[in-house]
Design a protein around this nucleic acid. Sequence first.
DNA 1: CGGTAGATCGACT
DNA 2: GTCGATCTACCGA
Length: 189
Amino acid sequence: MVSVATTFPLADFFDNDVVSVGRALIGAKLEANGVAGIIVETESYALDDPASHSFVGQTPRNAAMFGPPGTIYVYRSYGIHWCFNLVCRPGHAVLIRALEPTDGLETIKRRRNTDVLQRLCTGPGRVGQALATTPEHNGLPIWSAPFGLQPAQKRVEIVSGPRIGISRATEKPWRFGLKGSRFHSKPFA
DNA sequence: CGGTAGATCGACT
DNA sequence: GTCGATCTACCGA
C-alpha cells in the first residue's frame, strides 16, 4: 500500500533554498479567501541578502519571516499595500508578485475595483488586495484555511531577471516568471 | 503614451 | 526626518 503518513508534504516543498522554491512556485495554484490563481511571478529574498527584510535580523514587523517552512509573511509596503510572502527556511521568503486569476473573478474585480483583467493581480500590492490578505494572516501555514497551494504538476519554462524596486543587491537575478505569461507586473528583458 | 506626485506606516538615521 | 520588495491619478505631449 501507499503510505501517506507524512504530516504536511508542503513543509518539505518549502524546506529548500529560497531560489529553488521561488522557481518551483511558478505554475503553482494559490488559493486564498475564496479566490485563486496561477503564480506567474515571484522574487526570492534570502537571509544573507541586503535586499531582504530579514537581513537586519528579527524585528516585530518581519517576525513571521523567521517562522517554519510554509509560513505566511505579510508586510505593509509604502504604507499602503499588503504584500504576500511564503517562508522557506527561517529568514528566507518568496514574494508573490503576480497571478493569473482563475477562480473568483467577480470577487477579485470587486476587491480591486476594476474589470481590467491585466490589472487584477499583476504586482505584489495588487496580489495582496485581490487575495484580501492582511496582517491577521501573518504566521499562518499556507496549507490550512483560508489558504491552499497546489504545486505545478508539470514542469514549466521559467524566465528570470533582476528584482524590482530594490536599491541593494540589484545584481541577483532572483525575479522569476512563467515564460510567455501575459500577467507579469513588468516584462522580462 | 511617459513622467511624476501623493498616499501613509514601520524601521532606521 | 527619510526611505522603501507599490499603485493610482493626473498632467502634458
